[in-house]
């Protein structure tokens, strides 16, 4: 049986491999209409697999905007 690696439309291969959010474990097919009926709000709670918290190993917040290559603690 396959044990898939968590992926999501919010987190891509460019992001740190330790970045996680709920959608990566829920893994649902996105609702194609969703962007039509809701504005681009962000209620996503991100966490880091290395700290298990909402801050990374550098003590700064984790988010899809910031957990990318170039941040010192980011791991491919």
């Amino acid at each position: 049986m396959d044990h898939p690696t968590p992926t999501s439309r919010l987190v891509s291969a460019d992001h740190c491999s330790s970045l996680r959010h709920k959608g990566m474990y829920v893994m649902a097919e996105p609702d194609p209409k969703e962007s039509k009926y809701f504005d681009a709000y962000d209620a996503t709670a991100y966490w880091c697999l290395r700290t298990q918290r909402a801050v990374g190993p550098d003590g700064l917040p984790v988010h899809a905007d910031t957990c990318r290559m170039g941040r010192g603690c980011c791991e491919p």
């Binding site: 009926y37 504005d39 962000d42 209620a43 801050v55």
Partner: peptide, 24 residues
């Protein structure tokens, strides 16, 4: 506020009703 972390966003207006002009 979501405390010491981000993600305090929420949909507004809650888009069930048709509102032609919106700003957020």
């Amino acid at each position: 506020t979501g405390g010491a972390g981000r993600g305090a966003g929420y949909p507004l207006p809650y888009n069930i009703y048709q509102i032609p002009v919106r700003r957020r």
